[in-house]
Amino acid sequence: MTTANKKLISLREAAALVPDGANMSFSGFAETNNPLSFVREMIRTGKTHLEISGMGDAQSVELLCGAGAVDLVRVSNYMAKNGRCPNFCRCAQQGTIRTEDYSHFGITNRFFAAAMGIPFMPVKVMIGSDLCEIQNFDKDRKVMEFDDPFSGERCGIVPRLAPDFAVIHVARADAEGNCQLYGITSSIEIIARAAKHVIVTAEEIVDTEEIRRTNQFTILPSFFVDYVVHCPFGAYPGGVFTYYDYDLEHLDLITRSGKSPDTMEAYFDEWVYGTKDEAAFFDKVGIRRLMDLRADPYSGVSLRNRRQFL
C-alpha cells in the first residue's frame, strides 16, 4: 500500500500502472459511472490482451472491444441504450474475444467471496441454466451444484474472483482514497474490496474533514484504495447522478460507429487518438455541451438536457 500523499496521481500515471494482459473490472451501470476518461487514456496508450471481469461496465468494455484491447470477457450483460453493444457483439461473433457468461448476481457473488476473504459463496442462481451447463475458459471454476452439508439443500457455489485492477469512478474522494457516491452504487464497493489494486477516479477531490462531515455518503474506506485521480466529467459521455446527465447524442455516435470496424476506427481517430489527453478531448466536446448536461443541484439531473425548464 502506498502512503497517503503519493496516492493522488495524474490520469496518465494511473493508466501506465496497468500492464497489458491485466484482469480488469470497471465501475458502471447502464448509462452511469463508467470511468471513461481512464478508458480513453488506456486506448490512447494502446493497452492490449486485457481480461475483463465485469458487472454492468458496458460502456467501458464496448470501447475497449472496439479498440481491439480485449481477449477475454466475463460478461453478465452488455447493453447500449436500447440495444446490443455492436463492438462487443462483433468481437464475440468473430471469435476475437472469448466470453464466459454469468448472471449479474452470480458474478457479483464471485467478487463478494473475494471481498469477504472466503473461497466461495453459495448461491441460488445460475444453477439449472446454461450459465452453469456451458463453461468456457472458466471451466471447473465457474459455478457448480452443491448439497448444503448442514441441511442437504440443493444450491450452487461460485468461487472467489479477484481482478488485478478495479477502476471505479466515484463522486468525491479525498487524497487518501475515502470514496463517496450518491444514489445506487451498482456494486462497485464490492468489486473494489475484491480487487488486488484499486484505482479511483473522482469528480471532486475534497478534504478528509469534508468526508467526515458527510460520512453517510462514504462507500469505501481509504485503505482499500491505491491511487486517486481527479477526473471531472470522468464518466462522460455517461452521467454521474447530481453532477451531469449522460449525453445521448455522443452515446449514439459511439453505438452507430461501432456497427463496422472502419467507422469505429474513424471514431477513435477523431475523438481518442486525435485528442492527446482528456483536456483536449473536453475542448473538443465543448463547454456548451457540458453546461447543457450539468445537473440541477436540486433534482440531480440536467433539466435543460431533459427539456424540463422550471
Binding site: 453478465s76 452488455y78 446490443r84 461473433q93 448472471s103 449479474h104 448476481f105 442462481v125 439449472g128 450459465l131
Partner: peptide, 26 residues
C-alpha cells in the same frame, strides 16, 4: 438472452442475462 446458435461460435451475440437469470431463479 445470450446467443443465437452455438455458444462458442455464435451466429448472433445478445446482451446476456443481466439480472434475468437471478429473477427467473428466485
Amino acid at each position: 438472452a445470450t446467443v443465437i446458435g452455438d455458444y462458442m461460435h455464435p451466429d448472433c451475440r445478445l446482451p446476456g442475462s443481466g439480472g434475468a437469470n437471478d429473477m427467473g431463479s428466485g
